[in-house]
Computed example of a mutant assay.
Amino acid sequence: MIQDQLSRGHRITVILQALRIPSSTYYDWLKWHPKSRNRRRIKLKELVQVLWQRRKFYGYVRIAKRIRKLLKCRLSDRTIWKVMRELGIQSTMYRKRSKKPTTTTDMPQKPNLMRHLADLSEVVTTDITYIQLINQKWVYLATAYDPKARKVLAWQVGQQMTQEPRGRTDSSVNSPRLYF
């Protein structure tokens, strides 16, 4: 606006008086340049925006690490967090919910027959556990356990729950009673 009035031939003192602006404010504004800190902050915002556009699943920690590697400078994760907050961006990463395999049975729950036994020498317990592998597949681990000796007698890993007795066994146990 001031430049427009100056181009029309009005004097600067008259324009500043009409706008009620001190002349020192106007001349300070003419000489003003953004500080180096502000220029760095603007460049940092641009870089964060570019990195986030490439990989939107990156959060502030990964972006900060990437910037430190690119620029070879010291930079805190919190600074990047503040910049991302100012820009209104955040990671689009979310926790993937894995679905465990399910089993159903029509049989009612069996009572715990071991609870009242005084001697556990002839008892073997069994258990089946789900284990998720790195490739997101599930396998079953079936074990037979001797609670008296605190020792696994046999185990089997498989992709299905089957009834075939396979796997490693210990032959030192003489036909224990199985409670199912």
Rank of each mutant, 00 (worst) to 15 (best):
S121Y: 00
D119L: 00
V123N: 06
M93L: 07
H116N: 14
T102H: 15
P108V: 03
H116G: 07
V124N: 07
T126Q: 15
R95W: 01
T126Y: 12
K100S: 06
I128A: 09
S98P: 13
D127N: 14
T104R: 13
Y94G: 07
K96E: 04
N112C: 05
T125L: 06
K96S: 05
M107N: 15
T92Y: 11
S98G: 07
I128C: 10
I128S: 10
K110Y: 05
N112T: 01
M93H: 12
T102R: 14
L120Q: 11
T92L: 08
P108C: 00
M93A: 04
S91E: 08
K100N: 11
V124R: 14
M114I: 06
T125V: 01
D119M: 07
D106M: 09
S91P: 13
K100L: 05
E122P: 15
D127I: 03
P108H: 04
D119Y: 03
V123G: 12
S91H: 07
K99W: 14
E122D: 13
L113M: 08
K100D: 06
R115W: 02
L117F: 01
S121T: 07
T103D: 14
K110H: 11
E122Y: 03
P101N: 08
K100T: 04
T102I: 02
N112W: 03
K99E: 10
L117K: 15
